[in-house]
Write a protein that binds this DNA or RNA. Sequence first.
DNA 1: AACCGATATGTTTATATTTGCATAATAGCT
DNA 2: AGCTATTATGCAAATATAAACATATCGGTT
Lengths: 126, 126
Amino acid sequence: MAGPKGSKYYDVFLKFKVWLENTDGEGILGDGKFELIDQIDQLGSLKAAADKIGISYRKAWGNVKDAEEKLGFLLVDKHRGGQHGGNSVLTPEGKKLIEAYKELLVEFDESIYQITKKFFNKVNEK
Amino acid sequence: MAGPKGSKYYDVFLKFKVWLENTDGEGILGDGKFELIDQIDQLGSLKAAADKIGISYRKAWGNVKDAEEKLGFLLVDKHRGGQHGGNSVLTPEGKKLIEAYKELLVEFDESIYQITKKFFNKVNEK
DNA sequence: AACCGATATGTTTATATTTGCATAATAGCT
DNA sequence: AGCTATTATGCAAATATAAACATATCGGTT
C-alpha cells in the first residue's frame, strides 16, 4: 500500500517479510524458499519448480538442502533415476510447513493493512 | 518466539522485517536506516550516530543520502563547520518518519505474537 | 588567519552472495 | 545394456555489498 495521493509518500510502499531463523541468527527459510517448496509440492519435481520460478536447478537444490540441514529434518523426499529421471514430493513435515506459512501470510496481510494505514496517516500529519 | 519445548521447532524463531520501498522496487529505508536516523536525532550528529551503531561515517552518510534521494526530500538538516565542526538535526519530516516507524514496530510486535503462536501450533500438529 | 571537528565524496579493497558450468549417479523402460 | 530425465555436487566466474582509505570543505572560536 502506498501513501495517499498528493502526499510526499504517494509512491512509497510499506513492505514486510517473515522468515524462520535458528538460534545462531541464521536464516532458515523465508519467502523464496517457501515459494520453491510450494512449487515442488505442486509440480512434483525440483527441476520443474526451479524452471517455473526462474532460478537455476543448482540454486533450488542448494536452497532446499540448506533449509533441511538447518532444520534437522527433511522437507522433500527426493528420488533420482527411473522412468522420468526422478521426482520429488514433500514430506509430511514439509507439507505442514508450507500450509502453516500460507495461513501466516494471510493473517499478516490482514494485520498489516491497518498498521500501514495508520503509518501513512502519521507521517502525513501536518 | 520459538516453537514449544520438545518440538521439531524448539530452537526455530519466526522473525519479520518492515521497510519502505519505491515503485521501482528499490528499498528506501528499513531497520538499519531507521535506527541510524533515530540515533542522529538523539545524538545530534551523523558521526556520533555512526560510532554508536558501529558503522563507518562513510557508510552512515551514504545511507542517509541514499534514503533522501529516493524519498525526494530531506530527513536530516546537516551543518558543517562551526565550533564543533558541524552537527545534524532531523527535519520535521524525518522526525515524523521515525516516530511513525516506532509506533509501527510496536503494533507489529503485538500482531505477530498471535500469528506466531498459531503458526507453531499448526506445524506441530500430529 | 589558523585550528578543530564534523560533513561531503571519490576511489579502492575486501568480502559475501549469486550465478553458471561441468559432471557424476540413479533406476525404470525399451 | 543403453537411453533418459532428474537428482546430486564441486568448483569457477561474475555480481553485489560492505569496509577502508584518502581528502576536501566548511564556519564558529581563539
